[in-house]
Amino acid sequence: MDRNQIAKWFKEPSKMANKYSLHAIYFCTGCGIIEVPPVITARWDAERFGVIPVATPRQANLFLITGYVSVKTLKAIIRTYEQMYEPKYAVAFGSCPINGGMYWDSYNTIKHLDKYIPIDGWIAGCMPRPEAIFVAVTHLWTLIDKGMANGYERYKKYYRAYRRNQELALGKLEWPPLYPIGEHTEGGECD
């Protein structure tokens, strides 16, 4: 921890603490999850950067989506994302959540995850190496510093559109909307 960081700690404790205490809830959706065990165990040890896996979205502030997203999983992802509390960051891992990847023409897989929940960072590749997760984390730090990791704000702002996309993919949702869907909310497709 260098000296100018200490000044930052006093200036913006919440932002700094958020940076250095990323508790990740990771979703064992697809093949990407195989890269997570090396990351958190002895070989790469993510805990030195304060990144540790936790068991529930209530305690987490980082949502790691590892691999392709089937329609059925999407439901669980949305539910989990909505149960996390602000500030929260979502990072998609692998090329499948970006554009469908090798499942781009599958009838049962979501191609653009960003349509359904806001993603703050992407890790491209099939598979990305575990080091890529650290690159992503350092990038996320920069984004948090600059205030650009604001997916949760986007979600709130365009909630109506997100909700509509979710309903288009999943049909009727069982749970009530997270935010009130008023008339004044900005409509339209979001990407």
Binding site: P13, M16, G50
Partner: peptide
């Protein structure tokens, strides 16, 4: 650090 984050 974790506790500060929890606080905010």
């Amino acid at each position: 650090i974790d506790m500060i984050r929890f606080f905010y």
